[in-house]
Write a protein that binds this DNA or RNA. Structure first.
Lengths: 204, 204
DNA sequence: TTGACATGGTGACGTACGTCACGATCATTA
DNA sequence: TAATGATCGTGACGTACGTCACCATGTCAA
């Protein structure tokens, strides 16, 4: 998706410029499950992850929000005056603009660029969720790990900074499983493992 | 969700009344994966299922569309001029109104009841998809089968007309697995199995 | 320096469930 | 009436992967 600068028309950017910028520390919860939504975040810096947690504490990452993007689940809850059905938290310290819920509705009428922004989010997130369903329904964990590694490679390059634990949660499995599979990939000379770092040395 | 009668304002109902009604036979594909969307269906009678199919032919039902409802994936594709990323087909012979894609966009501005209808679909379908992810990520097949049976019970009563094969596809597993689990439930006196029918005789 | 955590490596074990391979019935059509 | 296809039952088998139980490091704060 595009940056706020190029996406929105001038008057909308002016309105947004008037809104407060919030800085959140790592692991802060942006949006709680089953709560009503009063503000919609647009992410300026950092990463937000949206997760679903099981009663037993197992969790899976539904999708990630990058700078310039917003949280479609919040927007949906807001447009319908309903609760939200997943949890969003910031992975690294992040900066966000918080938009009051009532503006979100207003802007849908007032600014066609906002409307298009929301429509686009619906498309992209649906696509991601369908991809996730496809993955967990049909793909084995080893393949999903490979895809996840490639995904991180696209964003971080060949030296990926991540722990096995976080990878496991992104994929929705146990840490030991990931550790074992990664070790396997290391033996096959695809990657080199270091504490908190995965170096990719051959095309996955 | 509600019926078209009560949901829409008069002028919109009048517009819809002018559109052709199509009757589709069982297993017709309403909407193909990766195709551009020219018409949005509103279902009048019957059932539409939206599915994702694996290369190997395995499939899972994403959600079902009942009378009065529409297909949010079509709408999303349409609002973004993009292809659709799943396949919809009719389960039983069904009647639908087909709305030209350009009207869908127009109506978002013109009729607030239509806008609300679409917003509501987004909320409901997201909720269902998140529920599905939760289920396939965390729940075992036996539990998912129980839930699916309850779901059918709500719609059809205690005598559910369905084959093991279809149940398997709805859940995304193999027929044998479902047959075995159902047999187990029969042994435990929860259900009675007949060809094409599952009778529920005790609270699941 | 010394705990206290966070990270990760690895063996052992159980099991849910996917797959193959049959056969037995029922239903529909030629 | 024979034949063909849909539906269902069931045994056998393999295996991916979740879980438990440790231990070995590295890191950071007190």
């Amino acid at each position: 998706m595009k940056s706020i600068e190029t996406t929105f028309e001038k008057e909308l950017k002016d309105e947004i410029a008037l809104l407060p910028i919030v800085e959140l520390k790592a692991n802060s919860v942006v949006l709680m499950e089953n709560s009503y939504v009063k503000e919609i975040p647009i992410l300026l810096e950092g990463i937000i992850k949206v997760r679903k947690t099981d009663e037993s504490g197992k969790e899976i990452i539904l999708y990630q929000i990058y700078p310039g993007e917003s949280c479609i689940l919040s927007i949906t809850a807001c447009l319908n005056d309903k609760q939200c059905n997943a949890e969003a938290y910031v992975e690294k310290t992040s900066k966000l603009v918080m938009i009051p819920a009532n503006k979100v509705k207003l802007w849908m009428e007032k600014y066609s660029s906002w409307k298009q922004y929301v429509y686009n989010h619906y498309y992209e997130r649906f696509d991601e969720l369908l991809g996730l369903i496809d993955a967990i329904a049909f793909k084995h964990v080893d393949l999903r790990l490979l895809n996840k590694l490639k995904e991180h490679q696209l964003k971080q390059g060949n030296e990926i900074e991540i722990t096995h634990q976080i990878l496991a949660k992104e994929i929705g499995t146990a840490r030991e499983v990931i550790s074992r599979l990664l070790k396997q990939l290391e033996k096959e000379n695809f990657i080199i493992l270091e504490r908190g770092i995965i170096k990719i040395i051959r095309t996955l």
